Simulated scan of single mutants.
Amino acid sequence: MPAEPMLASPLARPVVPLSWVAEPKWDGFRVLVARRSDGRVLVRSRHGTDLAPAFPEIAAAAAEQLRPGVLLDGELVIWEGGRLAFERLGQRMGRRGQSAARLAEQIPAHVVVFDVLYVDDVSTQTRPYAERRSVLEGLFVPDGLRPPWTLCPAASVTDLSTLRTWMSWSVVGVEGLVLKDPLQRYRPGVRGWRKYRVRDTTEAVVGAVTGSLARPGSVLLGRLDDRGRLRFVGRTVPLPATAARDLTPLLHPARSDHLWRGREFSAGWGTRETLEVALVDPDLVAEVSADVSLDAAGRWRHPVRFLRARPDMAPADVPPFGAGNEPASG
């Protein structure tokens, strides 16, 4: 099994040669799943973590459905309430035994498969993507793989109607597109593919900044809930110098009743490191560009891009907490 799967580098625009192929980009955990010739099943994360104990239904399906000597590459996902629930994957990590089995019944996982690296213990990695795709499709013919396995759709980048449809799936958590050269072999750990994330423009309230009010480094954003409380929804990437300079005169020190006073903010998903922040009076609205990766509450899981301040808007004009990337009306 490769130490690391093949990866994708980001694109600001989905522009690639017309011969390339596109696939939907799923919001889940990258996973490599194998059934070895000795019958042993392996379910590994991108970084080599053994996921089989936490996702016993996937290990069981691999043992039952994969023929010996097959290794698949895909995305581990959970559907809930008609959307991809990334946060549910995190809740299942670290579970073992009866706890893991119970969650497998309550919120079962699926694997969206988009590549095959071994068949009958013979590596397919030196073969071009187009050939690997044909082999993979052969595993899903009638009486082949069935749920929890799903074959990832693929289409030519010239099929604009299909690509637009996939990008419209952002409302259920599909993040965008992965773009692949049909002549390229599989290169573990190399960013040989390309990825394009769907982004939306929306608004949020400036609640704090990293750095200082005189030199803001990034912006912590919030939205009002149904009780009028400012709830944290995400953080921007580092501000360009011009944006920081333009923002500075609009920031005012927080009052003593700021609801975020005493709260700690994580420096990133999956880390215990916290940020040093300066609270500001939450009366300034920011327009931001955000991708579609949201948690169950509608908070952005990835940093967003600060576009401009909107002093013409009031916090009450901003979409409410939990609205995700829905833009403000008017």
Results as ranks from 00 to 15, higher is better:
Ala22Tyr: 11
Glu105Val: 06
Ala8Ser: 13
Ala59Met: 07
Ala61His: 07
Leu136Thr: 03
Leu307Gly: 08
Glu80Arg: 15
Trp166Tyr: 11
Val112Tyr: 07
Pro17Gln: 05
Glu57Ile: 04
Gly176Ser: 02
Pro182Thr: 04
Arg308His: 05
Leu11Tyr: 04
Glu75Ser: 10
Pro108Ser: 09
Glu87Gln: 15
Ser161His: 10
Asp225Tyr: 00
Phe29Ile: 07
Trp79Thr: 05
Val206Asp: 04
Arg301Cys: 08
Thr202Glu: 06
Ser134Asn: 06
Ser134Asp: 08
Gly262His: 00
Ala62Tyr: 06
Gln106Ala: 15
Glu287Lys: 07
Asp120Ser: 13
Glu80Trp: 08
Ala296Glu: 14
Gln125Arg: 13
Arg36Leu: 13
Val288Tyr: 06
Tyr196Glu: 00
Leu221Tyr: 02
Leu139Ala: 02
Leu151Gln: 09
Val41Pro: 02
Phe265His: 06
Val70Gly: 03
Ala214Asn: 03
Ala61Ser: 10
Gly90Met: 13
Arg272Asp: 15
Val233Asn: 06
Tyr129Lys: 00
Gln65Asp: 03
Arg92Ile: 03
Ser289Glu: 15
Leu177Asp: 02
Leu183Asn: 01
Thr49Gln: 12
Ala61Met: 08
Gly90Gln: 14
Ala101Asp: 11
Gly138Val: 03
Ala204Tyr: 07
Leu89Val: 07
Arg215Gly: 08
Arg223Lys: 05
Met167Pro: 05
Leu84Glu: 00
Ser256Gly: 11
Trp79Phe: 13
Gly189Trp: 01
Pro216Phe: 09
Glu287Asn: 08
Gly211Ile: 04
Ala323Lys: 01
Trp166Ala: 05
Asp257Tyr: 06
Glu203Asp: 14
Pro17Glu: 09
Val122Trp: 01
Asp291Tyr: 10
His110Gln: 15
Pro303Glu: 15
Gly268Gln: 04
Pro249Thr: 12
Thr210Trp: 01
Ala314Lys: 10
Val237Met: 09
Ala60Lys: 05
Leu251Ala: 06
Glu137Thr: 07
Val119His: 08
Thr126Cys: 00
Leu51Tyr: 13
Ala155Val: 13
Ala130Trp: 04
Ser37Ile: 03
Phe265Lys: 05
Leu239Ile: 11
Leu76Ile: 08
Thr49Ala: 15
His258Phe: 10
Val111Gly: 05
Arg46Leu: 07
Arg255Leu: 12
Tyr186Cys: 03
Thr150Arg: 13
Asp200Ile: 01
Leu294Arg: 04
Phe265Asp: 00
Glu326Met: 02
Leu224Met: 07
His302Phe: 10
Pro147Glu: 15
Arg187Asp: 05
Ala314Ile: 02
Val113Leu: 09
Leu221Trp: 03
Arg127His: 11
Val33Cys: 06
Gly94Lys: 06
His302Arg: 15
Leu221Asn: 04
Arg235Gln: 12
Leu251Ile: 12
Pro282Tyr: 11
Glu131His: 07
Gly94Tyr: 04
Pro315Asp: 04
Gly324Thr: 01
Thr124Leu: 15
Gly69Arg: 02
Pro240Asp: 08
Tyr196Lys: 04
Leu224Ser: 01
Trp169Phe: 14
Val277Gln: 08
Leu163Asp: 10
Leu294Met: 00
Gly222Ala: 06
